[in-house]
């Protein structure tokens, strides 16, 4: 039984693909994740928000073990992941990750960025990898930038290449860690549009973001974290109109105020 209530989704959800049970993580003495319980269904879209330093990045980075947890269990599509797992690469290649700072490979073109892992990790022949990469660059609306290097692209374009690079591995899960936070305001929507389209295609997504419009539009559930804990989990409708926890209300007050000011 998942510890959290099943989502009130308007689209079909599958079986459980991510399961976190009583997960604790420490940086030295610092208790960064506290007793995290979370279960995500195949096809579900989750938005994670919360103040800076609350452990949002750490939580999603534990899923592909860029960070290791010390206690509890994390099960990805049937496999328990942990620091000493042999073949963690086999899990990671099924989980795409998009970073705040893009992290494109600077010495490779957009197309090559998208072809590298499919060729080296999945052993896909070059011609096929290129065909897929071109198709997916089209899907993120930048086919004409295929031969440009990251430095020659705008932030929004770079982030869309980064999304394409992950999608070329044909992952089962996509993780986003504040994908629009490093972007100039006028480029935020081109990235969010791609993410919305991805959500509509049925991808399982966990997105750390403060873009509340995006959360309202695609999230099945919104998670609020504070001080290493999951404080509140609710469908967006209820999350935004009737938050249960005092800390959630305070955070929403601040964030909505800030976003109104910005727009």
């Amino acid at each position: 039984m998942p510890a959290t209530a099943p989502p009130a989704a308007d689209h079909a959800l599958g079986d459980t693909i991510i399961e976190m049970r009583h997960v604790d993580k420490f940086y030295g003495d610092f208790h960064v994740l506290r007793d995290i319980d979370l279960s995500v269904a195949r096809g579900e879209r989750i938005v994670i928000c919360g103040p800076s330093g609350s452990g949002k990045s750490t939580l999603i980075r534990c899923l592909n073990q860029l960070e290791e947890h010390q206690k509890g269990e994390i099960v990805i599509d049937g496999t328990a992941v942990h620091a000493r797992l042999k073949g963690i690469e086999d899990i990671r290649r099924e989980i795409g990750m998009v970073f705040q700072s893009f992290n494109l490979f600077p010495h490779l073109t957009a197309l090559e960025n998208c072809m590298l892992a499919p060729m080296k990790v999945r052993g896909i022949p070059k011609a096929e990898a290129e065909a897929t990469a071109r198709k997916i660059l089209e899907r993120v609306h930048i086919p004409e930038q295929a031969h440009k290097y990251p430095i020659q692209l705008s932030g929004g374009q770079q982030q869309r290449v980064a999304i394409a690079r992950s999608l070329c591995m044909n992952p089962k899960i996509m993780l986003f860690d504040e994908p629009t936070s490093a972007l100039d305001p006028e480029m935020v929507s081109e990235v969010l549009d791609v993410m919305v389209e991805l959500a509509e295609s049925g991808m399982t997504m966990l997105c750390v973001t403060h873009e509340m419009g995006f959360a309202r539009k695609v999230a099945d559930r919104v998670i609020f974290m504070d001080a290493g804990e999951i404080v509140e989990v609710a469908p967006p409708e209820r999350f935004f109109t009737a938050p249960q926890n005092e800390r959630t209300r305070k955070f929403l007050g601040q964030i909505l105020h800030a976003q109104t000011q910005a727009h």
Binding site: N64, E89, S101, F105, A117, K120
Partner: peptide, 25 residues
Amino acid sequence: KGQVEAGKSLGMRPLQIFRYIILKP
């Protein structure tokens, strides 16, 4: 560090990350 993390998140093994991501830059 983000370069290595990007490689890891794509499922690349440490030597592949070194060879294809780190070495040339």
